[in-house]
């Protein structure tokens, strides 16, 4: 029993080391808290089940008072990657980049080159949408079945991170029931794009991820 507790203690210390902040909020030194710091990535079937939705959030943990002034960075490209051949290399990308109050979308289209470096696929513009203002209704745009949104939203991520901290500090032996959502009341900047499934592979399973890339 004593040994079990000891091992559990080591495990909790390890948790302290790894669970800095949940999901991908502030995940790594080079990006933490900056305009390229992705908090979460979602991919799910749309209300129209012929469509697939990609959503990425950046700049997590915005308080309501900080949200009105939070802006997408015009030097940061948000790129959704889609592998539909099973090799974990992107065959298609959907790009989103802000310019003067609008978010411009490109793709889904084959990237010029795969990997860590990108150029914007200006020959494959999907469309653009006004970036929604804090306190105003969501602005959306649609073109030929694709839909686009960019702007502040409630952070959809939820977790009792505070209780984690208590466990880590040795003040608690486990979670509370019910727990308390540490991310309640905080906002993120979101980019949401919905496209026909036929434009990303049609059927089967795709492998997806999202990247932020900064203009050099």
């Amino acid at each position: 029993m004593k040994k079990t507790k000891w091992i559990l203690g080591i495990g909790l210390l390890a948790v302290a080391g790894f669970f800095l902040v949940a999901a991908d909020h502030i995940d790594a030194p080079a990006v933490q808290g900056g305009s390229s710091d992705i908090t979460d990535f979602y991919a799910f079937q749309g209300e129209n089940t012929n469509n697939i939705v990609f959503a990425a959030n950046v700049m997590g943990l915005l308080s309501p008072t900080a949200t009105a002034d939070a802006m997408f960075d015009e030097s940061v490209l948000i790129e959704f990657n889609i592998d539909n051949t099973g090799d974990n290399v992107e065959d298609l990308v959907i790009q989103a980049i802000p310019r003067d109050g609008k978010m411009y979308f490109f793709g889904p289209a084959s990237p010029g080159t795969t990997g860590l470096s990108s150029t914007i696929l200006t020959n494959n513009m999907l469309g653009s949408v006004d970036i929604s203002a804090y306190g105003s209704a969501a602005m959306t745009n649609s073109y030929n079945g694709a839909m686009m949104f960019a702007g502040p939203r409630d952070d959809p991520f939820f977790m009792d991170f505070a209780q984690y901290s208590e466990i880590i500090a040795g003040n608690a032996s486990g979670f509370n029931d019910p727990g308390s959502d540490t991310f309640a009341g905080t906002n993120v900047l979101s980019v949401v794009v919905e496209v026909p499934k036929s434009s990303v592979g049609g059927s089967g399973t795709i492998n997806t991820w999202v990247e932020t890339k900064r203009k050099q």
């Binding site: 949940a22 999901a23 991908d24 995940d27 790594a28 080079a30 990006v31 390229s36 710091d37 992705i38 908090t39 979460d40 990535f41 990425a56 940061v76 490209l77 790129e79 860590l116 470096s117 990108s118 150029t119 914007i120 991520f157 997806t208 991820w209 999202v210 990247e211 932020t212 890339k213 900064r214 203009k215 050099q216």
Partner: peptide
Amino acid sequence: GTYMQEDQVARPA
């Protein structure tokens, strides 16, 4: 211009 990677995310956490 050219854009170079800074962050990437797929599965949460």
